[in-house]
């Protein structure tokens, strides 16, 4: 029996984990990566990028398209399958996926709502001059102090810096989701450093790659994955399933 030919379009946050899992995947896997943190960019850029990928897949070459994404703050709502089925984990975001289940993710958030999560991928892709990735949409938030002063003037820049500090004031814990990938120890150390700089507690959460494994292996049970039939689109659902398929 020939293996399923799967195109996996994934956020770059998963690159190292997928490197590991792809070697023993049960499907014939092709990986396309999309730049990290698109969910923070305005203008529905994430949806547009994913839709573009889906629309341009050479459909004779694959049996299905899988997305290495979760709901990602509504970024996937409205995404439409083309001629191939599209498989999406029923996850809120990459953090839930790396923790292995939404249940575990929500339990960690319940334990400490003020948790700033990081993973190997997030630490790897931190801009060099930043300790924290900006948390809300907008180009303005990625400016550093000099740039802020240049754009808004000294006084306003001070005000904005103070406001930005408030965005993270409610965080009490940095939870680092550790996965067995290259340089994991180095990433963990950096995360612990960030926690210390911010005055947060640091906790290492062992990652669980079984969800991601099932994505690459083609084991898509209905509880954990939404499979869009051709031309169906993603709708937000308020039940446990998070997302559902709607006819186009």
């Amino acid at each position: 029996m020939s293996r399923q030919r799967l195109l996996l379009v994934a956020c770059r946050v998963f690159e190292r984990e997928l490197e590991v899992l792809a070697r023993t995947a049960k499907t014939e896997l092709q990986l396309h990566y999309i730049e990290i943190a698109l969910h923070q960019q305005p203008g529905a850029q994430l949806r547009a990028a994913l839709q573009e990928e889906i629309n341009t897949v050479p459909e004779e070459d694959y049996d299905a398209v899988a997305l290495g994404y979760g709901l990602c703050n509504r970024g996937l709502v409205g995404l439409k399958a083309h001629g191939l089925p599209v498989v999406i984990p029923r996850a809120h975001d990459c953090l839930g996926i790396l923790l292995g289940s939404s249940q575990r993710y929500l339990a960690e958030l319940e334990k400490q709502p003020g948790t700033y999560f990081q993973s190997c991928g997030w630490i790897e892709h931190l801009p060099a001059d930043r300790t924290l990735r900006p948390l809300a949409a907008g180009e303005g938030l990625s400016l550093n102090q000099e740039e802020l002063v240049a754009r808004y003037g000294e006084e306003s820049a001070q005000f904005l810096m103070a406001e930005y500090a408030k965005f993270t004031q409610h965080y009490k814990r940095l939870a680092f989701i550790a996965t067995p990938v290259a340089k994991a120890d180095e990433r963990e150390r950096k995360a612990a450093e960030i926690a210390q700089q911010q005055g947060w507690t640091f906790e290492r959460l062992p990652g669980d790659l079984t969800w991601l494994q099932r994505l690459v292996d083609g084991e898509w049970n209905d509880k954990d994955f939404l499979v869009l039939k051709p031309h169906e689109k993603v709708a937000l659902s308020y039940g446990d399933g998070l997302i559902s398929a709607e006819p186009a």
Binding site: G140, L141, L148, Y152, L160, E163
Partner: peptide, 8 residues
């Protein structure tokens, strides 16, 4: 406008 403009 982005968040900084909103805040200001």
């Amino acid at each position: 406008y982005f968040v900084p403009e909103l805040l200001l």
